[in-house]
Amino acid sequence: MYSVPTNQPFAWSNGVIEIPMTEKAIFPKVGKDQWWARLTYPESSYFHFSPWWGRLLFNMFSNNPDFAVLLLHSWSLLYWDENGHGVYKDDARIEGYRKLLKRLSKDYEIITTADFLDLYARGIITTPDEVDLSLAEWLPPLSVKKKAG
């Protein structure tokens, strides 16, 4: 495994463009430990896009990134029952997602993957760094042993 310490898109030497999921340090480094949070929906209480006055206070510790990738899965809109299954309960999660996008659109231009590829092809979004693919460590797939009997 190899990780490029960036939230910005970059290209591997084989031409594959990687767009890392956005993470940010949520508190200044204390000792050897650094606390990180991912931009996800539902929003993490540690990586929250707040009203401007909240950002002002929060950004004293950690600024919001210039380029952000939001992690959203279909199950992000579900709730978890007592058995750990994702279930639809109501429209609150989808409405919360719409509100998040509305807040984000004040500070960010929200684009799709197709939009990104078009902007990249036209040179509007660039990948200044190229990372040598030989730095990546290929891990074999996990194997699972079947129980006998």
Rank of each mutant, 00 (worst) to 15 (best):
N7W: 02
N7R: 06
P9L: 09
F10E: 05
F10D: 06
A11T: 14
A11V: 04
A11D: 03
W12C: 10
N14I: 07
V16F: 07
V16D: 11
I17P: 03
E18R: 06
E18W: 02
E18N: 09
I19C: 05
I19Y: 02
P20H: 06
M21H: 01
E23G: 05
P28M: 06
K29N: 09
K29I: 13
K29Q: 15
G31T: 11
D33K: 08
W36M: 12
W36Q: 09
W36H: 01
A37E: 10
A37P: 03
A37C: 03
R38M: 11
R38H: 03
T40I: 15
Y41L: 04
P42C: 06
S45M: 01
S45Q: 09
Y46W: 13
Y46E: 08
F47V: 06
F49M: 04
S50I: 03
S50Y: 04
S50V: 02
P51V: 13
P51D: 15
W52A: 10
W52K: 06
W53H: 04
G54N: 01
R55S: 05
L56T: 08
L57I: 15
L57Y: 02
F58H: 00
F58R: 01
N59K: 01
M60G: 09
M60D: 00
F61W: 14
S62C: 11
S62L: 07
N64F: 12
P65Y: 02
P65A: 11
P65Q: 10
D66M: 05
F67S: 03
F67K: 08
V69A: 07
V69P: 00
L71R: 02
L72T: 01
L72S: 05
L72W: 00
L72C: 00
L72G: 01
H73R: 05
S74Q: 08
S74D: 10
S76M: 04
S76Y: 03
L77V: 05
Y79K: 08
W80E: 14
E82T: 07
N83F: 08
N83H: 09
G84F: 08
H85N: 14
V87L: 02
V87H: 02
V87P: 03
Y88Q: 07
Y88S: 06
K89M: 12
K89Y: 06
D90V: 06
D91C: 00
A92F: 01
R93H: 14
I94M: 11
E95V: 07
E95D: 12
E95T: 07
Y97G: 03
R98N: 15
L104S: 02
L104Y: 00
L104V: 03
S105R: 02
Y108G: 03
Y108P: 00
I110K: 02
I110G: 04
I110T: 12
T113Q: 13
T113Y: 14
A114K: 09
F116R: 02
F116M: 11
L119Q: 12
Y120H: 14
Y120A: 08
A121W: 05
A121R: 14
A121H: 13
R122A: 13
I124C: 05
I125L: 14
I125S: 08
T127D: 12
P128E: 15
E130V: 15
V131Y: 10
D132S: 14
D132T: 12
L133H: 04
S134Q: 15
A136S: 09
E137M: 11
L139V: 15
L139G: 00
P140T: 12
S143Y: 08
V144E: 11
V144D: 00
V144T: 08
K145W: 07
K145I: 12
K146G: 11
K146F: 11
K146W: 11
G149L: 11
